[in-house]
């Protein structure tokens, strides 16, 4: 479990967090959603120990990742959005990292690379950006860490690869693992993420499991915008109107609509989900 309590962080030019608190449980794939610049990557870096959290604000099973002890680092892996592929083959890089992670599996790496249609002996620097991304995702998943933080992992992936990505991530989850995927491309994570965390500047607007969202909100595709809806968004074949779900109706949650609603109608969202 990850407990974040009263987290504050700022860069020289601006404050990012001021008193942020959230709890992240094991056995879940969290979708960390938010607009550009709200601090999604910063939060992942703080949880990875790459940035310093003051006053032990982040607690991962009793340890502060900023201390960067080998024990803590061997339990987590962070895949950044921007990276430079090493001048080495995927297999060699994985082998070099894998020695330090007790659950690393070379077989799993090969299986994942096969799904991505990549050869293990491909050298990173000779691959396109999207292929490098797939190689790094494969390494990240094969390390088998308890905590896996993926920052915009679907950027640069083609559509078939996005499908493979969702399947692979879902397949790698177990009760002890916590996977956090940050993205502003909400559609890429449809049917993968549960719970959803929607961030805005220095606050978490929504942190709920899909089941709970289903109970409280109904998403209906209709011909026109409804005045009674809490929120409406135009789509190709009409409008998706969001209503309070008073009668236990089961509807498909449109994550993108949910995200836009949370950003534009944050007080409404907070009101609906305030009684936890």
């Amino acid at each position: 479990m990850i407990k974040i309590n009263n987290l504050s962080y700022s860069y020289t030019s601006r404050d990012v967090f001021n008193g942020l608190s959230v709890e992240l449980k094991s056995g879940k794939i969290y979708g960390l959603l938010g607009e550009n610049g709200v601090g999604k990557s910063t939060l992942l870096k703080l949880m990875s120990g790459i940035l310093k959290n003051e006053g032990d604000a982040i607690n991962m099973d009793g340890k502060n990742p900023w201390k960067r002890t080998p024990e803590t680092m061997s339990e987590l892996y962070y895949l950044p959005e921007d990276f430079t592929g090493p001048s080495n083959s995927i297999e060699n890089v994985a082998y070099g990292f894998g020695k330090f992670y007790r659950n690393f599996s070379m077989d799993k790496l090969h299986d994942i690379l096969k799904s991505f249609d990549l050869k293990p002996d491909s050298v990173f620097t000779k691959l396109s950006y999207g292929q490098q991304k797939k190689g790094m995702i494969a390494i990240a998943l094969s390390l088998g860490t308890r905590y896996l933080f993926l920052d915009e992992p679907t950027n640069g992936l083609d559509i078939p690869s996005k499908v493979s990505f969702r399947q692979l991530v879902a397949g790698s989850l177990n009760e002890e693992k916590t996977i956090i995927i940050s993205s502003h491309q909400v559609r890429d994570l449809d049917s993968l993420i549960d719970p959803v965390i929607i961030m805005d500047r220095n606050e978490i607007i929504l942190n709920e499991e899909m089941g709970e969202i289903e109970k409280r909100l109904a998403f209906r595709l209709e011909n026109r915008e409804s005045a009674e809806a809490l929120f409406s968004q135009q789509v190709i074949n009409g409008f998706i109107n969001v209503y309070p779900n008073g009668n236990g109706e089961i509807t498909n949650i449109d994550t993108e609509v949910l995200f836009n609603m949370a950003i534009k109608k944050r007080e409404t969202i907070k009101e609906i989900f305030k009684n936890e």
């Binding site: 990875s48 080998p70 987590l76 892996y77 990292f97």
Partner: peptide
């Protein structure tokens, strides 16, 4: 720096 720095920092070995 970021990118190469992430691999180096995240590697589970002590400083």
């Amino acid at each position: 720096k970021k990118q190469n720095g992430y691999y180096f920092t995240l590697l589970p070995a002590s400083s």
